[in-house]
Design a protein around this nucleic acid. Structure first.
Length: 415
RNA sequence: GUGGGCGUAGCUCAACUGGUUAGAGCACUGGACUGUGGAUCCAGAGGUUGGGGGUUCGAGACCCCUCGCUCACCCCA
């Protein structure tokens, strides 16, 4: 074999056998989300780098080291989107969607790019299904999107999941928490790495997920955000939990949930699967009340979640659905011409039909039809062409009968 | 980004402590069977052992580099 051109690290092909699963998941997503009033939106794969620096957050791992950033020929700094939320926010502002009567509920399916170290359930190009709702500040909507995710997973027969929830406060209550974190961190400064010493000033929350294990252990003693929530956040969180109960969703409060993205306010949540191993989050999301305003748009709150397609698909059970199809076997040039015409007709009737243009014995054509799982084989040779009647064989029963064109089309329509 | 494991035919895997021409099963192609699938038997094709360098009389195996996969940590979807 000649030197092969490899795929790029962290990317992969999705082959025809697998694509059925993707199509099923995607169509189910569309069906379910539209039931809840969501509509599809598509935004560009690349955006101005600034969008993610401001949106995703300058202190997030994603922005610091995981973005595919490059300059175009005009020298602009562009980035392949590492997540979707900032793009929708940008799109809403640009298109003034908040002035239209339509609900601000969107879903989106597409590839994302992060320069991470690849492993199972983590790729450099991966796919997400996102949903976002805007201008709904009531905790009921937070509960509703969790309920929608839960329903969607159940429709796909994914049952072994856990729902984790938390509140990360807002710009009212978080400063006091950050301040206390800084104080705590200063006290034990000598136990922290150089990187964390910097984080004390920039974003002490990031100490929780330092690469150095001893820092993380030290941080165990730090206070939890849940003890610092202002009255509004406290109330929002308890109502959120209450509504989850109303929907019959079981959940667990996880005080350290979702620290890696800067923009979350109040509600955060995650749905995990025990089948996934280390990368166990099927979906994650939460509320982000300040992003729109910070991008120069109106003061409109937002909430939503993102689902990892690769992870989801790996836990969705699939039965091999196979629709019937007909394989046309022919012998000789005349039969081939008759076969080509018949195949055209059969396809017009809506049945999948395969004729392969290789010099093959009848035996090998039959064998191939069998291997491909054909429901019917239509056999044409000189005899059949002369008579205008063809051999139609049912591969399941093995029964073969002589049929003319009309009879064949009739049978196909019925099956 | 840190640490462990692994790369041999399309797939799953063999090949002893370094020793002839790198094997098997499945899959593929053909035949036994002149126009009839699944079973059986026979044959064929398929490899620069991921790539590069080194040690050696001799490397699939040992050493170094590199690429990729994988698992854990961490992060996230």
């Amino acid at each position: 074999m000649k030197k092969q051109i490899p795929t790029i690290r962290g990317t992969k092909d999705i082959l025809p056998r697998e694509i059925r699963k993707w199509q099923r998941v995607e169509s189910m997503a569309k069906k379910v989300f539209e039931l809840y009033g969501y509509r599809e939106i598509r935004t560009p794969v690349f955006e101005a780098t600034e969008l993610f620096e401001k949106g995703t957050g300058e202190t997030s791992d994603i922005v610091i080291k995981e973005m595919y950033t490059f300059k175009d020929k005009a020298g602009r700094s562009l980035t392949l989107r590492p997540e979707y939320t900032p793009s929708v926010v940008r799109s809403i502002i640009k298109n003034r969607l908040y002035l239209k009567p339509d609900p601000l509920r969107f879903y989106f399916i597409g590839p994302m790019f992060r320069y991470d170290k690849p492993q199972k359930g983590r790729y450099r190009q991966f796919h997400q299904i996102d949903i976002e709702v805007f201008r709904e500040g009531d905790p009921a909507i937070d509960a509703e999107i969790v309920e929608m995710a839960d329903y969607f997973l159940k429709k796909l027969r994914v049952y072994d999941t856990k729902t984790l929830v938390n509140s990360v406060g807002c710009k009212e209550c978080r400063p006091a928490y950050i301040k206390d974190l800084r104080k705590k961190a200063e006290e034990i400064k000598k136990d922290l790495c150089a990187d964390c010493l910097r984080k004390i000033k920039t974003n002490p929350l990031r100490i929780f997920d330092c690469k150095v294990k001893s820092c993380r252990e030290t941080a165990q003693a730090f206070p939890n955000i849940t003890d610092y929530l202002c009255q509004e956040c406290e109330e929002h969180f308890s109502k959120f939990c209450d509504y989850l109960g109303l929907y019959g969703i079981k959940y667990k409060v996880e005080p350290r949930l979702v620290r890696g993205i800067d923009y979350y306010t109040k509600t955060t949540f995650e749905i995990i699967s025990s089948k996934l191993g280390a990368q166990d989050a099927i979906l994650g999301g939460g509320r982000y009340d300040d992003m729109m305003k910070e991008f120069g748009g109106p003061d409109i709150c937002g909430t939503g979640f993102a689902m990892g397609m690769e992870r989801l698909i790996s836990v969705v059970p699939f039965e091999k659905e196979k629709g019937g199809f007909l394989y046309l076997a022919y012998l000789g040039e005349k039969a081939k011409r008759a076969g080509m015409e018949l195949v055209q007709l059969i396809r017009r009737e809506g049945m999948e039909c395969l004729i392969e243009f290789k010099k093959k014995t009848l035996k090998s054509q039959m064998s191939r039809a069998n291997k491909l799982g054909a429901t019917w084989v239509l056999i044409i040779g000189d005899e059949e062409v002369k008579k205008g009647k063809y051999q139609l064989k049912n591969m399941q029963t093995g029964i073969q009968e002589e049929k003319d064109r009309e009879e064949i089309l009739d049978i196909i329509q019925k099956s």
